[in-house]
Simulated scan of single mutants.
Amino acid sequence: MCNDYEQHILWAEYCRMLESLALEIPTHQTELDLPRVDNIHINDPAPIMRATSDTGVELTSMTFGFPPAGPKGGPVFNFRSEGRQFAGSKRCLVPASAFFEFTGTKYPKAKHRFTLNGSPFMAIAGLWREAAGNKPPTFTMLTTEPGPDIAPYHNRQVVVLRPGDWAAWLSLTKPEAKLLQPLPAGSLRVETVRPESS
């Protein structure tokens, strides 16, 4: 599953995209709220997008992965979406230039980079939680069955939302089942950035 993604979004591209979607950016936000990072892993801080109003979206930094549910578990970085209702959840978007999947059995495994065709960046459907005790605020990515672009590489995938559905996810103005599904074939471009070790 997706435990590694990239954030190389230019601030100007981010602003243009939100403006095209009629989403407002708080005046205090700058490119410093969208730092460039090559690899964001579990437990790393990263920016997420969350609603401030019906048309307002802010960037705020949170830790990737919900705290473990029990004493033996690890962070919950991917959360299965099928058959679930999210009206009572804190919903967010995870901005990303690309996400990575890994194949093979030998270390290091082959690394494959996925980008969204026709868009300078993507947003992955997510959930966030407030800080609790000495734990910072956290986020997780939602997953679904793999679409045709992902199926050759993994049996699950993160939910990549079309830009036109970003506001619908934040405000939940469309049913979850319509939003949280894989994109059609050809929506994602894949390149192998590291072959499997021989």
Rank of each mutant, 00 (worst) to 15 (best):
Glu176Tyr: 11
Phe139Met: 04
Asn3Ala: 13
Ala132Pro: 00
Tyr5Val: 04
Gly73Trp: 01
Leu127Ala: 03
Gly164Gln: 10
Pro182Asn: 03
Leu32Met: 13
Asp38Arg: 15
Glu191Arg: 13
Ser81Trp: 00
Ala110Glu: 02
Phe77Ser: 00
Glu101Ser: 06
Ala87Ile: 11
Ala46Gln: 07
Val160Met: 09
Thr140Trp: 04
Val193Glu: 03
Val193Thr: 04
Leu179Pro: 02
Ala125Phe: 01
Leu18Asp: 03
Ala51His: 04
Arg36His: 14
Gly73Asp: 15
Val160Phe: 01
Gln157Met: 14
Ser198Tyr: 08
Ile150Phe: 07
Met1Cys: 13
Pro95Trp: 00
Glu6Val: 09
Ala69Ile: 11
Pro148Cys: 02
Ser53Ala: 10
Ala125Asp: 04
Thr30Pro: 08
Gly186Arg: 08
Ser61Phe: 02
Gly126Ile: 03
Gly104Ser: 12
Asn43Lys: 14
Gly88Thr: 13
Arg189Tyr: 12
Thr27Met: 14
Ser89Glu: 12
Thr30Leu: 06
Ser97Asn: 02
Pro195Cys: 05
Phe64Trp: 11
Pro175Ala: 11
Ser187Cys: 08
Ala22Glu: 12
Asp38Phe: 11
Arg113Trp: 08
Pro26Arg: 07
Gly186Glu: 06
Arg80Ile: 09
Ser81Leu: 02
Ser187Ala: 14
Lys72Ala: 15
His41Met: 14
Pro47Asn: 01
Arg36Trp: 15
Arg113Thr: 05
Ala12Thr: 12
Ala132Gln: 15
Asp165Tyr: 09
Ile48Thr: 03
Thr52Tyr: 00
Asp165Pro: 02
Asp33Ile: 08
Thr52Ala: 03
Glu19Arg: 13
Arg189Met: 10
Cys2Leu: 08
Thr103Trp: 05
Met62Arg: 12
Ile25Pro: 01
Ala46Glu: 06
Met141Pro: 01
Pro67Phe: 01
Thr105Arg: 14
Pro108Phe: 08
Asn39Gln: 14
Pro163Ala: 06
Pro68Gln: 05
Pro136Phe: 10
Thr105Met: 08
Lys174Gly: 07
Gly83Phe: 00
Gln7Ile: 14
Lys90Leu: 15
Asp33Pro: 00
Lys111Asp: 09
His154Asn: 00
Trp11Phe: 05
Pro26Trp: 02
Met1Ser: 14
Thr52Gly: 15
Lys178Val: 13
Leu180Thr: 01
Gly164Phe: 01
Pro120Glu: 07
Ala87Ser: 15
Trp11Gly: 05
Pro184Phe: 08
Asp38Lys: 11
Thr105Pro: 00
Val190Gly: 04
Glu6Lys: 10
Leu59Ala: 00
Leu172Arg: 11
Gly74Tyr: 13
Ile124Thr: 05
Ser20Asn: 10
Asp4Tyr: 06
Ile124Glu: 05
Glu31Gly: 13
Phe64Ala: 03
Lys135Pro: 00
Asp33Leu: 13
Ala87Lys: 12
Thr140Cys: 05
Glu6Asn: 10
Glu130Met: 07
Asn78Ile: 00
Gly65Pro: 07
Tyr153Asn: 03
Gly83Gln: 09
Glu176Gln: 12
Tyr107Glu: 15
Lys109Tyr: 08
Ser171Ile: 13
Pro195Tyr: 00
Leu172Thr: 00
Ala168Asp: 11
Pro45Gln: 11
Thr55Pro: 04
Pro182Lys: 09
Glu130Gln: 14
Thr105Val: 12
Asp4Met: 05
Val76Ile: 15
Pro152Glu: 09
Ala123Met: 15
Ile9Lys: 05
Pro146Ile: 03
Trp166Glu: 01
Ser81Ile: 01
Thr63Met: 10
Ala167Glu: 07
Glu19Asn: 13
Leu179Ser: 03
